[in-house]
Design a binder for these strands. Structure first.
Lengths: 239, 239
DNA sequence: TTGATTTCCTGACTATTATCATATAATCCG
DNA sequence: CGGATTATATGATAATAGTCAGGAAATCAA
């Protein structure tokens, strides 16, 4: 796998992914100041944006591609905290919290990602209170999502967690087809295991179970949801 | 159990618990404005401050006592998200996120709790940017803690999770004695199970295991940590 | 293309943990 | 105080999920 980075030119003002991001409503002057000195790079699958425990130097903005954010457990297994894609920011938690990165971020699918120096971002927060507020609001929402996930991890069986996560993935990455939805993100079985919090073998077994029950089908490395209601049934009930 | 509430008078300006809170550095004028129209109530064990899914009307400030914040799972089991005590706020996530409460809060040990109307809190955020920033910083830290917990829930065995949580509880509620630390919060076995994410019976068994190994001892409804290093050993390794 | 590497899959076995049943101890309340 | 309720404890058993081993398929890189 090549690890060469290639720089590209992306202007915030004309950035398509900005439409899906918290930068959506920024004015031109803010955008120009923000983009001052930023760099944009094409990352290949497998490259790491930052490592847990290191100091954040700025904000990563995903233009395209997919990234996993994960923590390393003591036995060397990853726990994926969240997946990020076009329009998402990475690293603001550590920046705002004035802490080191609490997790690592690695590219899952080739990605175009801009890096905005810390000072530009802090300056934006200082001068644009509206943005600061909407960012805080978004962080609070995030916190609620994490609470949800915590409860799921603690209370549901592995089978239910897998079903639940497939539903969530479908909501985020679903591409509608006729009578079915393709989850448009290439995750390895190991990645899925590291989302669900289980062993790779268990994910493989359960997925082929779901496939036998015609809840899902496989399409290359991607999963197609055939029966969302069936998945919800798998996700909701205990035993 | 009595469910009578009794009002009391607590002034923010002279509040002892404020020293441990984010309100620590507020000036008198801010404190006066904040305290305008607030109410202070003595809650008895078992009383609920707010319920998951309802609309937040203000901020709860814990003056004394202990509170559990939890979500209800589909099988009716609680998942305790966090424990709060003197100096902690409750409800700011929902207020700032402009969402309904994502969890419920119930008193574990008799508590004196002030309720600050939403408008006062919002006004404080509007007028005191320094406070807003420190609150945001604290929320970001919280998010990091939740990530940590997620990874723990997903990756550690029940035994390790129990040991880990005992260590965390010791850090937060520990009262130093000679050669041992008392965890000064009265949790039922069921509460502990709902923190760890397991069955009550399992907690009972593991705790008596830890007791047999002289890692802990029981003191009424509280737990005394005899061998913190031993607990860390139990917490860290897989198998 | 081809050999090497990684990912995916399956089976067998084991360990952990949940569940159910029941007993005892502690606490609450009239 | 004493009966009722709740919390804690223990045993037996079953279900779930993890681990280890080995093989097939897919992907990668030369």
């Amino acid at each position: 796998m090549s690890t060469k980075k290639s720089s590209i030119n992306l202007a915030c003002a004309t950035c398509e992914s900005r439409k899906d991001s918290l930068f959506e409503n920024l004015f031109t002057e803010d955008l120009d100041a923000l983009g001052e000195g930023k760099s944009c790079v094409i990352y290949k699958k497998g490259q790491t944006l930052f490592y847990e425990g290191t100091r954040p130097m700025g904000l990563f903005c995903i233009n395209s591609g997919k990234v996993k954010v994960y923590k390393m457990g003591s036995q060397g297994r990853e726990q994926i905290i969240r997946l990020s894609s076009s329009g998402d920011f990475l690293g603001y938690r550590a920046l705002l919290g004035e802490e080191y990165y609490s997790a690592s971020a690695t590219v899952l699918e080739d990605a175009a990602i801009c890096f905005i120096p810390k000072s530009n971002f802090i300056e934006l927060l200082r001068t644009n209170l509206t943005f600061f507020k909407s960012l805080t609001k978004s962080i609070c929402h995030e916190l609620g999502v994490m609470e949800e996930q915590m409860a799921m991890l603690a209370q549901k069986s592995v089978r239910e967690r897998l079903a639940t996560n497939l539903i969530i993935l479908k909501e985020s990455y679903g591409v509608e087809g006729e009578e079915s939805v393709l989850i448009d993100i290439a995750l390895s079985r190991e990645d899925i295991a590291n989302i669900v919090g289980t062993a790779t073998e268990t994910v493989i077994r359960l997925l082929s179970d779901f496939k036998s029950s015609n809840l899902i089908s496989f399409e290359g490395k991607k999963i197609r949801v055939l029966d969302p209601k069936g998945l919800v049934r798998e996700a909701d009930f205990y035993k």
